[in-house]
Structure formats: C-alpha cells, structure tokens
Amino acid sequence: MTFNKTTEQTSNYEHLDKMSVDELLININNEDKTVAYAVEKALPQISALVTQIVTKMQAGGRLFYIGAGTSGRLGVVDASECPPTFGVPFDTVVGIIAGGDEAIRKAVENAEDNATQAWIDLQAHDISTKDVVIGIAASGTTPYVIGGLEKCNENGILTGSISCNAASPISNTAQFPIDVVVGPEFVTGSSRMKAGTAQKLVLNMISTATMIQLGKVKGNKMVDMQLSNSKLVDRGVKMIMSEIPVTYDSAAELLQNMGSVRKAIDHFNASK
C-alpha cells in the first residue's frame, strides 16, 4: 500500500510570490494556529510515552533523541536545554543528529539515508535496555531514524517516535508512536514550518513533564536550574525569597553558599 505524506502535499495557498509581506505573515500565522490543535489530538499518545520514560528514568535510565535535519536539530536543542533548566547531568537526555555535530549547522549529504548509522551512534553512548530512544522524523520515513529504532527494538530498548504523518513507517516501527498531523505546509514540503513547530511543542511536553515527574520542579519553580548567568542567579534569589522568609541579600548568600535553589531552601528549613 502506498504511503501518502500529508507534509508533502501541495500548499493550500497559491502564488506565494505574488503576496505582500503582510499577506505572507497573516497566512503563515493562520497555518501556525492549527498546530496546537493537532498536538492536542495526540495528547493520549504523548502521555503513554511520557509515562514509560518516567518509569525508565526513575530506574536510572536515560532519554535519547535521534533524528536528521530539522528534526535532529530540534532533538539536540531539547536535550541541550535539560541540564541548565533542570540541573540534570549532560548525558541524562541526549540528542543525536544524523551526520554528527557538523549537521547541526549545515546539511550533511546523504546522512539521513544511512539506515545503519543511528545504531552505531547510539552504541557510542553505551545504550542499554534501561534507556529510551525517541526517533524524530516529520516525514515518518527517514532511514537513519527507522534503522535506529529497529535495532533498538531488536535489543530490547524501549522506543518512541514523533512524526507529522499518520500511520507512517516510523510510527509502525516505534513501540510508542506520536502522530501530529499538521497537514500541508505553507511552502509546499517545507517541514521546518508547521511540522517543526509541532515537534518542538511535543518535545517541550516530553522533557518538561518527565522532569517534573522526576522531582526537578518545586511548585512551579526550576529549583535545580544551573546558575550560569546573572539573570538566572537573580531568578534563583527571588525563588528562595518566595519560599522562605529572608531578605534579598540573605537569599543571595544562601544561594552562593549552597549552589542551588533547592539546596538553599532545604538548608534553611533544616536549620530551623
């Protein structure tokens, strides 16, 4: 049976090159408005995968993203933001892109067509049955991603996927697939647009919900965030002040001495 990619179907708009700037922006924005609703329809799938990830990570497992092109870059971005946001080690959430780090900045020819390389890339991180691997591919057909998921399945590693086409090959490969069907792109086939936005929203949900379930957020605060610049230090001080009765200067001293918002609050409470 032929697999039809809605992400490759002709745009609903004609003569883009004849539109004014305002017309282009309005029409792109109108298309973008539909993305959140497409994600909403996939919430049960997202929930099922996150539940599995939390269980694995509570037992010491890690989360891996594999992808090519835009999808791979989005996975790398989400993974790279977890240590500063939630204070986890850099290898807790790992983004792997076809073609290696060079492909983050520029396309690497034929990298996404190599069906065996993803497994090699994962093995470099000592992948095991404790871990979870999520394949990201807007088209749902990327050989690099599908090949990696197939090898993970063969080796007893839990797999998920994020695609923007229904019943795609990647969805049929992953144990916990997520299909966010956004329809044709404003510029025909440009899946960095609605599909990329959808993938980013889903990745935000997966990593954030997982980290909250792992105890990395207190109330609504990032109490384990890394204090890597003055803005974050100031935010941390104000977090401490919202939790315990201390002045700004005292909170700043506590934060400097203890190294994290969580430790500062716990230290203060323990001393009472």
Rank of each mutant, 00 (worst) to 15 (best):
G148W: 03
A59I: 14
Y248W: 13
I178L: 09
N155Y: 10
P169V: 02
I206T: 11
A138C: 08
Q226C: 08
S20D: 14
Q45I: 12
V132K: 02
N12P: 07
L254G: 15
A166H: 09
A252Y: 09
N229R: 05
D17F: 12
I240H: 02
K200C: 11
G135R: 14
N153D: 12
I96W: 04
D249P: 01
G61L: 00
G67L: 12
D32N: 01
Q213K: 03
M258W: 11
G69E: 11
L24W: 02
Q9K: 12
V145S: 00
A111I: 13
K18Q: 12
A59V: 14
I265R: 00
L232P: 02
S139E: 02
K272A: 09
L255M: 01
A98C: 05
E150K: 14
T6P: 10
S191N: 02
A103K: 08
T7D: 06
G148V: 00
P83L: 05
P184F: 15
A38M: 07
I28A: 08
P143V: 12
L49K: 01
M19Q: 08
S163Y: 05
I96Q: 10
M222E: 11
L24A: 01
L149R: 03
K56C: 12
G72N: 07
L49N: 01
A98G: 03
C164D: 05
T55M: 13
K41H: 08
H125S: 08
L214W: 03
S271H: 00
A167C: 12
A124T: 12
Q52K: 15
V180P: 01
G156M: 01
L232E: 04
T197C: 15
D131K: 02
S260N: 12
A264C: 05
D131I: 03
Y65T: 03
E81N: 03
T208Q: 10
